[in-house]
Design a protein around this nucleic acid. Structure first.
Lengths: 252, 252
DNA sequence: GCTTGACCTTCCCCCAAAGGGAGAGTCAAG
DNA sequence: CTTGACTCTCCCTTTGGGGGAAGGTCAAGC
């Protein structure tokens, strides 16, 4: 029987870890002196400890290892671990790919986007006039949500966020844009930069090994507007050099 | 200008994170009301925040991102990140490989082993008698260290840990076994199981994508001995079913 | 002008899996 | 019996957040 330090050297881990494992109920000393509370271990415990360390080496959480030593199913736990490791590997490879593209490219971020209730309007060509009309309609209904307007270019639609259902017209309808994981990039400056931004975003998504799974969206974070329009404040700027346009592409 | 909640929704992160980034000096509000201490942000800050989030998405520590926004070298940081990601990827792949082998195999653990000062004896065949002689020599010198004896099978040597240099003889010499990262496995039971254990260890090392970088060692953690030998206590057991033998293979 | 409810502030506790260290107690060799 | 190595418990720190309490602020609606 060895006190904790000698046993820790024998096992190749720290005494601190042995105390922690004792407290977690993971691995207990073979005997504890009830007077001095010293912990004593036996070499015969080494195989049990090695099993714990082998599982920890696979990245398994100590809590799950604890369930195993108390009689859980090893096969199930290993299967969970395999799935988790697969996710970790995908994450690392996404990061490596993103690192290669990030050098000198735009800052693409993948993030979850919540459901967005909007007033949608199909639009042919007179986009500015269409925004006037859509904003006016939503404002009249008292439903303007304090979020920036946008478009779904592939569908030829523009939208304005609302706080709830609005009366529909021949051209304007209410819809809830679905929640999705979105690859996002912000384009700074006049709208002629948007095409290049969208191309860069698509390159980024492909290089990161992701798949587009729906129509992209465009958000107008800072834009120009006639003062008479009275859009909600905070987004209108004077110079088109200050325009900010967010391009979003839903990915699996 | 938006208060923290509205800006957080716009940026797609939590208000908590914005407060934390403010406190870290990573990303500050464009204005703070000195009376109410409310933080106010502008959409014009979104590109800056997106850069931070893009770097965080690569797994870069916030502290390092902080150095970047205060004027560090992006190229250097990305190079460091690449090296770190490479290590992470190797770790994950080692774990995946280990997971495949671990099912139903022995518990192999890779751990660092410290330098070990030992008395070494070259041995031809009479192994038990050789251990008697070596232990006696070390005990006479008063240098027995409280660690288990072992062997280096590929060199035909046995060793006993010592606390410092000992007088050398024709057959016994003092040596410091080098520190190394070791793949280790414990064999339970009589010595006829050792060969299978060594084979399993070598299979494990190969499957994990590691390379042996030196001679393997054998440690006798629990073994049989004549009581007259007076080896340090704690290691001697009666039945060979209780024998514990640790096989170590140094890996890169 | 006042109430109300949503929002914001700081402060503290929580997670995993350890490491560091303080202050006090214990063991064993000389 | 001293001394030094060892061990005990307890608390703080790390990273990148989340949860929630207690109290202050803002703005819409009446």
């Amino acid at each position: 029987m060895f006190p904790i330090g000698a046993f820790a050297r024998l096992a190749g881990i720290s005494a601190k870890q042995l105390r922690a494992y004792d407290q977690l109920g993971l691995f207990r000393p073979v005997w504890v002196d009830p007077w001095s509370r010293y912990r004593y271990y036996s070499p015969a415990q080494l195989p049990e400890l090695r099993r714990i360390l082998a599982l920890r080496q696979l990245g398994m959480p100590l809590e799950e290892i604890g369930e195993l030593v108390r009689g859980g199913s090893l096969a199930d736990a290993l299967e969970r671990r395999r799935a988790e490791l697969e996710r970790e590997r995908r994450l690392v490879e996404e990061r490596v790919a993103a690192l290669d593209i990030t050098v000198g490219e735009a800052d693409v971020v993948v993030r979850p986007v919540a459901v967005e209730p909007v007033a949608v309007m199909r639009v042919a060509d007179a986009v500015e006039h269409a925004f006037d009309e859509l904003e006016a309609h939503v404002r009249d209904a008292g439903r303007r949500a304090h979020r920036p307007p946008g478009a779904i270019p592939s569908a030829g639609e523009i939208f304005v966020p609302v706080t709830g259902p609005i009366p529909e017209t021949a051209t304007i309808s209410y819809r809830r844009l679905p929640a999705s994981r979105m690859a996002c990039v912000i384009v700074r400056g006049p709208y002629r930069g948007v095409a290049a931004g969208r191309a860069a975003l698509e390159r980024w998504v492909a290089a990161a090994g992701l798949e587009p799974v729906g129509p992209g969206r465009t958000l107008y974070l800072q834009f120009g507007a006639d003062p008479s329009l009275r859009v909600p404040p905070g987004w209108v700027v004077d110079s088109d050099e200050e325009f900010l346009t967010e391009l979003q592409l839903p990915v699996g």
